[in-house]
Amino acid sequence: MMKQHRVLGSLIAMVLMITGIVVLGATPTQAAKNITKGLTTEKPLKYNKSTKEIAILTQVNGTYFTQATRHVIVNVDGSNGDKSLLKTDATPKAFNDALKKVGAKAGNNLTKKSAAGTKVKGSKLGVYFVINGKRVKAEKAVQVNKKDVSNLDFRFGGNMAMNNEMKTGCVLCFDSCPVGIASGAKYGFQYGEHFTGKDNVLPKDGSNMVVVFKVK
């Protein structure tokens, strides 16, 4: 009898556990098995606390395969919405909040008055472009003056107050920036480094592409 009860108890526990996993798994922000799936223009951002990852849906702007820019990802409604390699419906605020939720620390060390050459601080971020289901490091998909680049050293700059004020929509900048939520520390502030996207690596103009940020 006792044995039957134990079996029944463990069966109920299993059912409850499976139900819990299914229910929790259905919420978009928690414990998603594959963070890159299910992103839409209405829900362009997902995050995963356990893997410390954020994924956002973007659209490729082929203009910057031949022309240079310093904006990697910009929100479509921002004043720089057409000036970036990748456009997104995700807002800088949503991205900033998601970074905080996955445990990243904002640098907030840059202002417009910072000395030229100052580098952005904050948690280190790995940036990956998801192309044909595979993660490609951002460094592999861009060039500076037609030369390959290495370790762009992306950081969570923060800058939410300035971002709200400027309304540029900047999510990810190539070089150290007092406005972008995240930016690359390889190039200092106001050094004016610009890049172009590689058309042989990136999807063609107008394609959707998921970008994954991993807090290191």
Partner: peptide, 18 residues
Amino acid sequence: LVVIGATIREVFNASWAL
């Protein structure tokens, strides 16, 4: 062709093919 396409579509805020 890219810059011509980009110049025009930027004004209309459209995503037409370049």
